[in-house]
Design a protein around this nucleic acid. Sequence first.
DNA 1: CGCAATTTTGATTTTGATCAACTTCTGTGG
DNA 2: CCACAGAAGTTGATCAAAATCAAAATTGCG
Lengths: 239, 239
Amino acid sequence: MTEITKLQSACSQCNLQELCLPVGLSETELSVVDNLVGERRKIARGEAIFRSGDRFTAIYAVKLGFFKTEVLSEDGRHQVTSFYMTGEVLGMDGISAETHHCDAIALEDSEVCLIPFHELETISVKVPTLQRHLHRVMSREIVRDQGMMMMLGAMHAEERVIAFLLNLSQRYAARGYAARDFNLRMTREEIGSYLGLKLETVSRTFSHLQEEGLLQVEKKHIRLVDTVRLKKMLSQDRL
Amino acid sequence: MTEITKLQSACSQCNLQELCLPVGLSETELSVVDNLVGERRKIARGEAIFRSGDRFTAIYAVKLGFFKTEVLSEDGRHQVTSFYMTGEVLGMDGISAETHHCDAIALEDSEVCLIPFHELETISVKVPTLQRHLHRVMSREIVRDQGMMMMLGAMHAEERVIAFLLNLSQRYAARGYAARDFNLRMTREEIGSYLGLKLETVSRTFSHLQEEGLLQVEKKHIRLVDTVRLKKMLSQDRL
DNA sequence: CGCAATTTTGATTTTGATCAACTTCTGTGG
DNA sequence: CCACAGAAGTTGATCAAAATCAAAATTGCG
């Protein structure tokens, strides 16, 4: 029984390898990683992997499910800073001060693989491929955040919503899911928080894009009807 | 002559150590770093260290001067994503794709220390303290970006301007400069771009805060008159 | 099933953008 | 060293986008 569990949770057996792990590890390197990534943890919908202020010990690869991270300022304000889906790695905000700076909340029943960070640092000394991969994952987060700032600082409501949907679409596609047809895991309010908009604005924008025949919205289900035109609306606007 | 230049550019002799390098390196470790951080490069005002699309080879520690980074989307839009001052490290956006995703422009005549990244990776295998420091620096950038998103997504114009000034103040203070009295290195337009506001709004907000007796503005010179109240305005608003 | 949470839609207000005019500053060449 | 052109900054009037307030409809837990 424990045998089976172990086998299932081994990175070498995981079908997400390409996403959270570097490709091209040797057999022996893979087994090192298998030993590193020990625990797998179930997180029920609404529960947190970690919260702001928690001591940082590990980063987490999403094995299954969907997460949001949100930061909260001293006053009541809070903002969703990111959504994470299968194969993506979260928690790297905690490295700098050994403390997490945001809450990571499951938007559906989920499962994460726990990667103890200090062990990862130790091991990556011996497996340079792993070290480079870690740096890339962190850098990718930086680049993504820059894009986000661009969006929040320079785009209008409609453009933000379109960019959000196209980004989701592209990430689903990368995972082999339908790119044009998917279910939102988050509420309008969470989308709004992420995009720096109010939930009413998100709702109105959905309705408007539907009227224009660009997409179909039915509660949480989205169908992108005209991706070409949607993409054009992103780059063309404000020329 | 070359002797002197070498000595001057050696990290072990640099008065910024605490900022861009880890504390507590041994003599031998420091000399390793000295060899790594080879070149020092002067960047004239208005010139770029690197531009979007440039091949990534190194990260850069600001030895002297002041920089902005800005991202540009396919259409003409561009946005300032960060300002960097003495002792801060920039260029880490390039790691993920071996290509830079933004322009890094000097706002005054400046000097940077060039840290070849692949060599840094190699060496950090032998100097774990250095590896950990690198990870912290990268993580700090992620945390900073999250704060920025919060600001762009959840704050009003006046709050953004205040947050911006207080952040500058705090960074100047950390470098031993006056915290309440400093010169802006960037234009109103650049501040606006960074804060997701128009330059007129920045100007008006300055004027308004001055009328309120919270600060004094004279062209590029800022004096924070009532930091206590300014801080309060940040956290109290929207309660 | 029932109630709280979520979503949609409408009316109104507010914030910051836009347009415009004018001033000040900076740096350059005569 | 001054004149001048272009850049940068201020201020005012108006406009537009998104927020806010409000009410009704729908959904999905427990």
